[in-house]
Design a protein around this nucleic acid. Structure first.
Lengths: 215, 215
DNA sequence: TGTATAATGTGAAAAAGTTCTCAAACCAAT
DNA sequence: ATTGGTTTGAGAACTTTTTCACATTATACA
């Protein structure tokens, strides 16, 4: 274990491993080898071992990993041993859909508040979640202990929203706006760029190899 | 130019470059250097040049790139010189939100159809887009020339939906289900895993360095 | 025409990420 | 105990990706 600087590729995989272990645990499996995980979930066993080893010696040689024990470690590592409160900025189609999506899921994330600039929306509710004026973000975020923000506003507003929430002390932001955002290095920004993803599919279809969409 | 095998990292960036060029073009800028693009959009100029050079010699030494010309090249490379018809499987919150999201945008992608298994939804419309029975996918996809599919169904149904659409000849799939899917190698699958993204933010918050969400 | 400045395209170096390999450690059975 | 079969953890080897450095080509202006 020498958790010097762990790459995002590794931490993303940790999340995947946790999901795999949850499935194994549900089936009552008590121990599992990296090889078995790899086979079943189409992963690479050496990579699983290497990733896990960054964080500690969780396995037992000749045996493998104890499923419950490893789950506990992974949850701890991923900071899932505490609740996270999410605010979504932008109460449009995407923002409201995400409100439900996350609220639904039995994870450690719960959507505590929605924000918008459109006065006609403010005060309304999406399920249990109230829509607040974006102007009041700092105040509401403080009160509701928001620690994660999702940006679901049009591209042209994304940068200013980002600045507003980081100024209010938010350190983790997930951005859906197709816009290149500049952010302080002590803040973690994760951009999910649907346009780029779609265009990357389009690129694939345009290659001669992919004999195109319809057969 | 030696487009042997271009990495997905490169093609994703091509999409970003196109977006940057669109912005420059809107401002009436005619030529631009890789250095100027890099400065303005927080990118790396060497990488821009290297990425572009995989596809051809688009620049002029001492001058830079002609904005309009490069845009045309990028659109062609990304297969954006033709319309793409998208089908979304799963008419839940996320699926319907995406229907609007893409429909809205002035891109080359238009959502032609929604699919669901829930009989009560079939026949209804989301905006202009009708909801069909997933059983009829092959038929409707053929008729509407669907070439891209978005999977927005619960994780447990994702694999079977994927198989159904690839059997119908679909070659490009974007998946929102947090599920490790197995796919034929002549099909391009792009998974957007919101759970993993959130947990990666959670990991960051759990690090001592990030002195946590609320200040 | 010649000189100075600008900026590409590319080979080489560096950095980052993945896979291989195997000694060490564990378990079960004799 | 000893042997044989497993499986981890980690160094080494390999692959991929990014960054550097600069020869080459273009423009502008004296």
């Amino acid at each position: 274990m020498k958790s010097d600087k762990i790459s995002e590729l590794t931490t993303n995989r940790m999340s995947i491993y946790l999901r795999c272990l949850n499935e194994l645990a549900d089936e009552g499996i008590r121990t599992v080898s990296s090889e078995k995980i790899a086979k079943r979930f189409h992963l690479n066993s050496a990579q699983i071992r290497k990733d896990l080893a960054y964080f500690g010696e969780f396995g037992v040689r000749g045996v493998g990993y104890y499923v419950e024990e490893l789950r506990t470690h992974l949850r701890k590592i991923l900071g899932l041993n505490k609740e996270h409160c999410v605010a979504i900025i932008g109460a449009g189609r995407l923002g409201t859909a995400l409100t439900d999506y996350y609220g639904f899921s039995q994870t450690n994330f719960s959507v505590a508040a929605l924000f918008d600039a459109d006065q006609s929306k403010i005060g309304q509710k999406v399920g249990e979640v109230e829509i607040f004026d974006i102007k009041d973000f700092a105040e509401v975020a403080e009160r509701d202990k928001i620690d994660v923000v999702v940006i679901a506003v049009p591209a042209e507003f994304a940068q200013s929203v980002l600045e507003q929430v980081t100024n209010a002390g938010i350190k983790a932001v997930m951005n859906f706006a197709p816009s290149p955002l500049k952010v302080d290095e002590n803040v973690k920004l994760k951009t999910i760029d649907l346009t780029t993803s779609l265009e990357s599919l389009s690129y694939f279809l345009a290659q001669p190899a992919a004999k195109n969409g319809r057969k």
